[in-house]
Simulated assay, not measured.
Amino acid sequence: MVATTPPADRALITVVAEASATTPMPPHNHKERKTTPMTNNSRPAPERYLQAIDCEVLTGIPAATWRYWAHIGAGPASFKLGRRRVWRLSVVEAWIAEQEANTQTGGAA
């Protein structure tokens, strides 16, 4: 047996649906938050930390080499962040610049 909706109920549903579709949303009751633009010197840029695979992508030197250098104390300085070995991006970039400078002046890299 199929239940049918009486015509009066259909009309009521249609009226309610049309009313809700055209009713504007009420205005927000919260105050607008005032924000001030941040200046460059208000907060330092967050330091980026690289894992061995990130160092590999940056330099082309295999991740295993980065981990080995950390183990023997060679290469740029690294440290443990929780259980992960990480390098600061700024330290890696400085180390790359140092390697470049040593190679350009004829020194051993």
Rank of each mutant, 00 (worst) to 15 (best):
M1K: 09
V2C: 09
V2D: 13
A3E: 14
T4N: 11
T5N: 05
P7E: 10
P7D: 10
A8G: 05
R10D: 14
A11V: 14
A11W: 10
A11M: 14
A11D: 11
L12C: 08
V16G: 01
V16W: 10
A17K: 08
A17H: 10
A17V: 09
S20G: 09
S20K: 13
S20H: 13
A21L: 11
T22E: 09
T22F: 08
T23Y: 05
P24V: 00
M25T: 11
M25V: 12
P26G: 00
P26W: 08
P26S: 05
P26C: 05
P27H: 06
N29K: 05
H30D: 09
E32L: 08
E32W: 14
E32P: 02
K34R: 09
T35W: 14
T36R: 15
P37R: 08
P37E: 15
T39W: 10
T39P: 07
T39H: 11
N40G: 12
R43D: 10
P44C: 08
A45N: 07
P46H: 06
R48I: 15
R48E: 15
Y49S: 07
Y49V: 07
Q51L: 12
Q51S: 05
Q51A: 06
Q51W: 10
I53V: 12
C55L: 03
C55T: 04
E56V: 01
E56Q: 03
E56F: 03
V57W: 13
V57Q: 11
V57L: 13
L58M: 08
I61N: 01
I61C: 00
P62S: 04
A63L: 02
A63V: 03
A64M: 08
A64K: 05
T65S: 03
W66C: 03
R67C: 00
Y68L: 07
W69V: 03
W69T: 01
H71L: 12
H71Q: 13
I72S: 02
G73V: 03
P76W: 02
P76M: 03
A77E: 12
S78Q: 01
F79S: 01
K80Q: 04
K80S: 02
L81A: 10
G82W: 01
R84N: 09
R85P: 04
R88G: 05
R88A: 12
S90D: 11
S90Q: 09
A94P: 01
W95T: 01
W95I: 02
W95S: 02
I96C: 00
E98W: 05
Q99V: 03
Q99F: 02
E100S: 08
E100P: 03
N102F: 15
T103F: 14
T103N: 11
T103I: 15
Q104E: 13
T105E: 13
T105I: 13
G107P: 07
A109D: 07
